[in-house]
């Protein structure tokens, strides 16, 4: 898998396919990006599980924190890692001990560990790095267009009027899949330099 840019269909199939998401590094502080990504994904109908050993005994939007992936105690479709690049590998190693394995390991915006990705992919797990599932869900549904963001999708269909907590269709026509976006080229150049 080329991790410099992702075809929309790859991201779309992941977000359409997974139901449960364990978020490693979820924060109860309501101005942290992990908090509002967690809240957004919960509102869009995902079964969210906050993982953070520092907050066991508390809950996040009604979902109890667990200390580690092993403590979830049930199968989970996707692991969303809200940690710096240097802390990715131990999480992936732990994820690889789960039975059944998760289908997807997602690393947040700014986080990338190619060795960890390779290890996960060797086990048949799909990997996304340096992306935010909230932004990608908002982009593919075009909900993010409210902020003037280029969703890189088109649709001539009338969408249902949005209500709180509804799932949105991600099945819009893509404008090029992001393969050649200037922002992706810049990210690639940066990763080659570093």
């Amino acid at each position: 898998m080329n991790h410099d840019s992702y075809p929309d269909n790859y991201i779309r199939s992941i977000l359409n396919g997974v139901k449960s998401i364990a978020m490693v590094g979820a924060s109860p502080v309501n101005v942290r990006p992990s908090y509002f990504a967690f809240k957004y994904l919960a509102q869009r109908g995902y079964d969210m599980i906050p993982v953070n050993p520092g907050h066991v005994g508390k809950d996040l939007l009604g979902k109890p924190f667990v200390a580690s992936l092993r403590d979830i105690g049930r199968p989970v479709d996707m692991i969303d890692i809200f940690r710096n690049s240097s802390h990715i590998m131990p999480v992936v190693d732990e994820a690889l001990t789960l039975d059944p394995l998760p289908k997807v390991i997602w690393m947040q915006l700014g986080a990338r560990d190619d060795a960890a990705a390779e290890k996960a992919e060797a086990a048949g797990i799909k990997v996304v790095m340096n992306r935010c599932p909230k932004i990608e869900y908002g982009r593919l549904s075009s909900e993010i267009s409210w902020m003037g963001v280029n969703s890189r999708t088109l649709s001539s269909k009338r969408a249902p009027a949005p209500t709180q907590g509804m799932r949105l269709s991600l099945n819009r026509m893509s404008v090029g899949g992001g393969d050649t976006a200037a922002s992706d080229r810049a990210a690639k150049n940066k990763s080659e330099q570093s």
């Binding site: 267009s145 088109l154 249902p160 819009r172 026509m173 404008v175 090029g176």
Partner: peptide, 25 residues
């Protein structure tokens, strides 16, 4: 759901706009 790239004139007409969810305008 193809990832085919629409041309400039298609984007000039469609990008950012879809029927209004409430009225269908």
């Amino acid at each position: 759901m193809s990832d085919r790239l629409p041309g400039f004139s298609t984007l000039a007409v469609h990008a950012g706009a879809q029927p209004d969810p409430t009225t269908g305008a």
